[in-house]
Nucleic acid binder design. Structure first.
Lengths: 193, 193
DNA sequence: CATTTCCATTGACAAAAGTCAATGCTATTT
DNA sequence: AAATAGCATTGACTTTTGTCAATGGAAATG
């Protein structure tokens, strides 16, 4: 249990067995069925969710009911509405499962205790968030500076596994496009072949 | 000297006078004239730059020479090509001054020493990057889910000071638009008045 | 203070992306 | 196995955004 979580942790900051045991006290396993929510807009986000197995997405829904996907999370990824989690304000995002999934949950209280008691946890979190920040900055750069075809190629190159497991209209949603537009971009790309 | 920097630091993690003195050893002041670079694409980013006074922008340049602005940084903000800084890979962004500016530079070596020797520094960095991550996530959400007019309103509401100090074509660049398009969005918005 | 340079706006037109509707295919569900 | 729901694609058309060119004004420069 928690194999993927501790693998991720140890890749960034290596823990002794004792430290692992200590951390385990603060973790809660949770299984989620496909389409099940772990967070709904308006509720306070109670957990940081680490994906042991499966796939989730976070997204916002506009007035017309159109979903815009903010993030995908496969095994080894972390997902949350961090703003809501940290401030206890109502969440602006929804998070649900794309596949049957297994999560490791860290509650706010656990998070705070771990930050306080285990400096390596703070380092782990810092490194995680730094990586997430850099990835988001690249995503922004791509969105504001590249033509669609390049953006799509970048996405496929960066996340081939997501491209395989997730329906295309969700990738369109992640890119801020309609499914039709993405379909046409793909068609244009294939003409070279 | 370093007033704004330590104000920012103390707002997040409060330091004793002794700790402030300790940190000061690792800081370097730097003045930058308008249009002067602190980082050019292809060079390795040597510093995290804290803005004491003035304004900077980071941006990428595409094949046609068009700039896409990744970030603005006014007083109290931090700017860097974090990926390049952390990995020592060549930077993909340029950073230059929009106005005559005063910076506080933290070198890689200083950053690492501070992380090691002063836990409060790690906390400060963690909180900074967390805030930056949340801001970027909101920006992505805005880009992929909102109509232009809403995006522009959000920008103005969030950064009225940037809107005042920076030419509009740079805001267009930050939004991934041409200056003409932003001008037309603004025109449409004024029709209500 | 004269001259550039920068900048925002506008118009006419072209290109890109969205909308709506229909089709056929595949995976799920019953 | 049949029925349903989800999905990708396509066509016709509309709307949005980009491109190019021109203008006038403001700000920076020598």
């Amino acid at each position: 249990m928690y194999e993927v979580f501790f693998r991720s942790f140890n890749e960034r900051v290596s823990l002794t067995k004792e430290e692992e045991e200590f951390v385990k006290q603060f973790l809660t396993p949770k299984k989620l069925r496909k389409k099940q929510f772990i967070l709904q807009e308006g509720d306070v986000c109670k957990y940081i969710c680490f994906v042991e197995k499966g796939a989730l997405k976070s997204y916002s829904v506009d007035a017309n009911g159109t979903e815009s996907i903010i993030q995908f999370a496969l095994e080894g990824w972390t997902i949350s509405d961090l703003y809501s989690f940290l401030t206890a304000e109502p969440a602006t995002y929804n998070i649900d499962a794309l596949e049957d999934s297994e999560l490791v949950l860290i509650s706010k209280a656990s998070h705070e205790t771990l930050l306080e008691k285990l400096p390596k946890y703070e380092t782990y979190i810092r490194l995680q968030i730094t990586g997430a920040y850099i990835a988001l900055q690249k995503r922004i750069t791509s969105v504001i500076s590249l033509p669609l075809e390049e953006r799509y190629k970048n996405f496929i190159a960066l996340y081939p596994n997501i491209a395989q497991r997730v329906p295309q209209h969700m990738i369109a949603s992640y890119m801020g496009l309609t499914p039709e537009t993405l379909s046409r971009v793909r068609k244009k790309m294939n003409l070279g072949k």
